[in-house]
């Protein structure tokens, strides 16, 4: 449950317009805040966007977060 709450919190940081999904432009907006390069954020998006449809859902985001925490895809 804590994982889901944290994941939702991070998702909302990325999804500022509360669209319900995250696109590449949303992640690029975080470039200065997160001190990550444009290329790194592109890679993050590619890794998280499991179905490669150009938008990240909360489910995909949570899967990536759990992968980061547990080292494998558990959701």
């Amino acid at each position: 449950l804590a994982l889901l709450e944290k994941s939702r919190e991070f998702f909302q940081i990325c999804d500022r317009e509360e669209k319900g999904f995250i696109n590449r432009a949303d992640l690029q907006h975080l470039q200065t805040e997160l001190s990550l390069s444009s290329n790194e954020l592109q890679d993050v998006f590619d890794v998280l966007d499991a179905d490669q449809n150009g938008s990240l859902t909360l489910e995909e985001f949570t899967t990536g977060f759990s992968q980061f925490l547990f080292g494998e895809k558990t959701i």
Binding site: F10, I13, L34, L36, D43, G64, F65, Q67, F68
Partner: peptide, 28 residues
């Protein structure tokens, strides 16, 4: 090699989520 790609992906994700975590903890 999927293993190398997997490891690289984990590193990218780790950077991203660690940054998000420190952003959260760094704010009041």
């Amino acid at each position: 090699d999927p293993n190398i790609k997997g490891a690289a992906s984990e590193g990218v994700l780790a950077n991203f989520f660690n940054s998000l975590l420190s952003k959260k903890t760094g704010s009041p």
